[in-house]
């Protein structure tokens, strides 16, 4: 998966919208959106690449206050397929008008929980058959998890007090493994050197990438070097 790295883009207003476009492009969705409850102000902040008239309609009617994909989705630890949501009056209020704006009710919300009680929700939609939807979910769900946490962490750190809290804290093992990767060792080599399984190496790398807000291991190394956590290889 090749997604644009949000932290590399200058802090412009449209970088989050561009990331959502990128998610749709690379993971084959029609639309993507992201919403978060700011843990400090309590406000709901969001980004979406839906048609402008739908966003206007949604905002004007204050649908974010009742949208079950946000308010129910946030309570799950696993991605919530919208077909699991009960067809409550709130669901109807949000989705009855949606088709007129080109928005399908076939979607999925990926909840991300942050360490300070912050929650972010990345939702994606696609108008397609059951079969196609099922296969697509299976294919992209892992990448969607990575994209969702990347988006969430970057939105959180665009908020100054949260940015101060979110400085990456790597474990000794994670630093050690990043250092070996920087020096050109493979995961198998590193497993042998540290006498741990290569899957353990992968787990620590995955965690280090998340903590450093990186989408790839080279990005993670660059950032760790930049922060003085490891030495250049």
């Amino acid at each position: 998966m090749k997604l644009i790295d949000l932290s590399k883009i200058p802090h412009s207003d449209d970088r989050f919208a561009r990331f959502l476009d990128d998610v749709c492009q690379s993971l084959e969705f029609d639309h993507a959106s992201y919403a978060t409850f700011n843990p400090i102000s309590g406000a709901i902040q969001g980004f979406a690449n839906y048609r402008t008239d739908w966003i206007m309609h949604y905002t004007r009617k204050g649908l974010h206050r009742i949208d079950p994909t946000i308010h129910i989705g946030r309570k799950s630890i696993a991605p919530v397929d919208w077909n699991r949501l009960e067809r409550t009056p709130h669901f109807q209020s949000v989705f009855n008008d949606a088709p007129a704006f080109g928005v399908a009710a076939r979607g999925l919300t990926v909840p991300v929980r942050g360490p300070y009680g912050d929650v972010g929700l990345m939702s994606v939609t696609r108008d397609c058959s059951d079969q196609e939807w099922h296969l697509l979910k299976k294919k992209v769900i892992g990448n969607l998890q990575v994209a969702a946490v990347h988006m969430h962490d970057n939105v959180m750190s665009s908020d100054l007090p949260m940015a101060a809290l979110n400085l990456p804290v790597l474990s000794t093992r994670e630093r050690e493994i990043l250092q070996w990767v920087a020096e050109g060792k493979t995961q198998q080599d590193i497993g042998d050197i540290l006498a741990i399984s290569h899957r353990t190496v992968e787990v620590h790398l995955r965690s280090a990438r998340t903590k450093l807000g990186a989408l790839s291991t080279p990005q993670a190394i660059g950032r760790a070097v930049g922060l003085g956590m490891i030495k250049p290889g």
């Binding site: 991300v112 360490p115 892992g142 998890q145 990575v146 969702a148 946490v149 804290v169 790597l170 474990s171 000794t172 093992r173 787990v203 620590h204 995955r206 965690s207 990438r209 998340t210 903590k211």
Partner: peptide, 8 residues
């Protein structure tokens, strides 16, 4: 040590 952190 800080714990592992990953959405996966």
């Amino acid at each position: 040590e800080p714990p592992l952190r990953s959405s996966q």
